[in-house]
Design a protein around this nucleic acid. Structure first.
Lengths: 367, 367
DNA sequence: GTGAAAGCGCTAACAG
DNA sequence: CTGTTAGCGCTTTCAC
């Protein structure tokens, strides 16, 4: 029973009615200089502060924004959440955070909790927005919501990038570097529509570039790759020369795993990621990736829901896909020469540990 | 006004009183099979779910845990928060998240909001626990709280490691590798008592090992080091041969900055971090660091506050410092030979980009 | 077994 | 100007 002290106590202490206390402390109505002072004093003496619970009940709004993301361990979400939290705070909202850990069951439970908490709005990154029962409820109840990273579904805006298109670009980059047989790596392909979209775009792109269809490699847990026979994929006649990971976090893990195998990136295999997390640039080899702006995602999502919350009967806003760009990085090189059996690299030597800064492609490409 | 539908609507729909609805839906009292069914039906038909706002007002508890951390961008906090969120959820609590961005003013405001929200408990990582006015209020009101990473202050338990002791160990490691002149790097030295403690321990350690007093280098913003004249620190007669960064995130940034200068780690300068974030092991050179268990921090903090919340009049628990260990990594090598002016490294060659896995010191050292 | 009513902390009419 | 009062959605006596 925290802070037992209520507006009533202040009223009694100040020798006035509760309404007066409310008026004074909220500066929401008249009060003589004299009572004003008595109230202020009393409040200070009692260290009183309003309970948002009572307030919320009365006003029927909580000023809370529910936020559901798969994970905070992936820096892309950590950044987005941090930013949206800051934006929300600025506008007088706070954030109820839930992590689904990519688990649809947890995801559903989290949504139900958010609903029960009567959050004023929601910011969500879902595994599969299109078939989330709770999302339907959210729409039913007309609760302002905005997705993040998910491709928008009718009725729910989203801060997103065009995954398919970006993934197609990646195929182009692989092709340009001379790759023909590459793979697509996803953490939980089954429960991430982003991964699926990226795969589909990649497939399209590979075909368009006349490459083989990419091999789909699914992994269950990050960082540990004993279960995936990476070695097998990377050796033999039909060895893959490149891997497109469905996100940077995974890409970095893969590079590490490849190193553990005693192989090199991009010497033995090129790796490209997706997201553009900051650490990827400091990494050696620096990570080639699709750069997205996680903070902007967070900011846009926050601005959008708050806008929806504060303006009555707003039509569902139409957010256009955010800009993204491909960033060259040392992790993408040319495959070892096709016929050259001397084991040496053609266009890209084993990377030095401290080469110059990687360059960035102009950031204007709109999706 | 989300979910306009309330218990009253259900009662009307079911043709009974609200008390009955409450009893049935909460399974908290008797009800004939017949009314039970009517209520259940009505609730389903209306897609009713209780409002936690009303509930909280009535029960005087919110089942919310306020969580305040400096930043989510530092993976060490992201991990801790994710874990504590999961723990909380398991026990029926949810998390209100605030990031202070290492700003004492924001920190204070965040605490005030958490207080107003009437969270049942708090998990905090503060800049300076010892002089946080709001923390005093928390104690006044007897609100269960547990700190994370902060050294405990009287009356508030904390999930922490002994920063001083760990930092002393780091000095030992530098000494063992043959360093004499090293520096300590902190992001916001002035607003992080952790950084200060680590510095103090490091200073002690350096003295104990007969090294020079470490040079204190303060930086204001992560990742960008134009402001710090790293170059100057690393060249000349009195060049530093090693840098101890107050956290891994900073350490990685420094390594990157050093590379940008065209220098190598540990060839030109050794770097040691603090925290043991996962990415540090995959990094090349792998990061030598003090390994702490961020998830355990989160778990312990969550368990502690929840324990305090659920058990009445509990004495303030005495948490002992968590285990930590030093992890060898490629980023710590021997300094270039003192007199050797040929520019080549003595004990540690320029690191290969894909050496074998770094070993870990036994993890038992208790603080 | 069931319903009426009080009250949680607060704000917003509405009287005085 | 200021106090009284009626809810906001819910649980919990307490009669019936």
């Amino acid at each position: 029973m925290p802070s037992g002290i209520t507006i009533k106590d202040v009223a009694r202490e100040a020798g006035c009615g509760v309404a007066t206390v409310s008026r004074v402390l909220n500066d929401s109505g008249p009060a003589s200089a004299e009572t004003r002072k008595r109230v202020l004093d009393a409040a200070a003496r009692l260290k009183f502060s309003f309970s948002d619970v009572g307030r919320s009940l009365q006003s029927r709004q909580t000023r809370a924004i529910g936020c559901l993301v798969p994970s905070l361990v992936n820096p892309v979400f950590a950044e987005a959440v941090q930013e949206l939290q800051a934006c929300a705070l600025e506008r007088g909202f706070h954030v109820l955070l839930m992590c689904s850990n990519y688990d649809p069951a947890l995801e559903a439970e989290a949504m139900r909790i958010l609903l029960a908490k009567r959050v004023d709005g929601m910011i969500l990154t879902l595994s599969a927005a299109s078939d989330c029962a709770e999302l339907a409820t959210v729409q039913d109840r007309n609760i302002p919501a905005c997705m993040m990273y998910n491709t928008p579904v009718p009725g729910v805006p989203s801060a997103f990038v065009d995954n398919r298109s970006a993934a197609r670009d990646v195929a182009g980059e692989f092709a340009r570097a001379g790759h023909r047989r590459v793979g697509f790596l996803a953490l939980r392909f089954g429960s991430s529509d982003r991964a699926r979209e990226r795969y589909e775009g990649f497939l399209e792109g590979c075909r368009a570039m006349g490459m083989d269809d990419p091999v789909l490699v699914e992994v269950d847990e990050a960082i540990r790759f004993e279960d995936v026979n990476l070695q097998r994929l990377l050796s033999g006649d039909r060895a893959l020369t490149g891997l497109f990971a469905s996100n940077d976090y995974l890409a970095l893990s893969v590079i590490s795993a490849v190193h553990d195998l005693g192989l090199t990136v991009p010497g033995d295999v090129s790796v490209v990621g997706f997201d553009g997390i900051a650490i990827g640039r400091a990494f050696r080899p620096s990570l080639a990736t699709i750069v997205t702006d996680a903070r902007e995602m967070g900011r846009i999502a926050a601005d959008t829901v708050i806008e929806m919350i504060t303006t009555q009967d707003m039509p569902v806003p139409e957010l256009s896909g955010l800009a993204y760009s491909f960033r060259r990085g040392e992790s993408l090189g040319s495959p070892r020469g096709g016929r050259t059996d001397d084991g040496e690299v053609a266009a890209s030597p084993t990377p030095s540990c401290h080469p110059k800064r990687n360059s960035t492609v102009p950031k204007e490409q709109q999706s």
